[in-house]
Design a protein around this nucleic acid. Structure first.
Length: 278
DNA sequence: AAATAATCCTGCGGGC
DNA sequence: TGCCCGCAGGATTATT
């Protein structure tokens, strides 16, 4: 399930492809929608556009061009990959036909395919002012931003009554953390997922934030977590092997040996060590 | 306001 | 063995 580290890796992969093939010659839609109908006209308007920059905001990938910005969200099973002739997959819903810049030898193309079995992803188009897009305007701060306003984050967390895990996953409070990394970050911080956010002490919050940032950086360095669907260009990520609690219910805690527990918290499967986390 | 529940979808694994 | 059922989850919308 792509969370911040996985999206960051996909973004880097895409940036590499667009560096060699910066022209979006054509966008081929192989069905009419993902979770929402494709904005067909807006996508067509990008035909011939030059990609100038690829960036990430929260779990969104932003492909900036001289004609507007292509917004891609991977949902839970979305992936981008070059698709050679004959290598198509059933759930390839979009093909980007990329070309080389004007002035370079003609003819060489790359076909980038968006594959998404569950179709929870999003493909949209915004202007240069993509930050104002309704999807992106409400997003909270980036955990890896060196200028992150820690005090504001603390204020936003301490007034909440919900479980800390739900708050950690709330993209309006802090972006990038999904269900897997939420359990992992709370384990590293020694906090039970069910703790009420308002009851978290300042030093606990600071530790949680530090552990979350460290976890995300470590996951990026290890190529992300490969859980069923996530694969990137350079092969499978390795981070899932480092998971301390996620999907380890009934198994021994790697730190203390106690049995990892699991239950649904705020509608999501949640894992923790009853001995290491309080 | 904020927490919770339902919704979308396919693949897979547990159980029998 | 094979089939069926339930679960998995990000973000949006609806409901309490």
């Amino acid at each position: 399930m792509p969370e911040l580290p996985e999206v960051e890796i996909v973004k880097s992969d895409l940036a590499g492809y667009f560096a060699k093939f910066p022209v979006i010659e054509r966008i081929e839609l192989r069905r009419k929608d993902l979770r929402e109908p494709f904005p067909v006209k807006k996508l067509k308007a990008l035909h011939g556009a030059n990609v100038t920059k690829v960036l990430r905001r929260a779990k969104y990938i932003l492909i900036e061009t001289d004609r507007g910005t292509l917004i891609s969200h991977l949902g839970m099973t979305g992936s981008w990959r070059p698709v050679d002739l004959g290598n198509e997959r059933i759930h390839d819903h979009v093909y980007l036909h990329l070309g080389q810049a004007l002035g370079s030898p003609r003819g060489l193309q790359l076909r980038l395919g968006y594959c998404d079995p569950r179709r929870f992803g999003i493909l949209d188009v915004a202007g240069r002012d993509w930050a104002k897009n309704t999807r992106l305007s409400k997003l909270g701060p980036e955990p890896l931003d060196p200028d992150l306003d820690v005090e504001l984050l603390w204020r936003n967390i301490r007034r909440r009554q919900g479980a800390i895990k739900a708050i950690l996953m709330n993209q309006e409070i802090l972006v990038g953390v999904g269900n897997i990394y939420a359990s992992e970050a709370l384990f590293r911080a020694g906090l039970r997922p069910t703790r009420k956010a308002s009851g978290i002490k300042l030093n606990e919050f600071l530790l949680l934030l530090r552990q979350t940032v460290g976890l995300l950086l470590e996951a990026i360095a290890k190529g992300g977590s490969t859980i069923s669907d996530f694969v990137h260009g350079a092969g499978e990520g390795q981070f899932q092997d480092s998971h301390s609690v996620y999907d380890r219910a009934g198994m021994d805690c790697r730190v203390c040996g106690h049995q990892i527990k699991s239950k649904t918290v705020a509608g999501r499967s949640t894992f923790w060590c009853p001995s290491c986390q309080h």
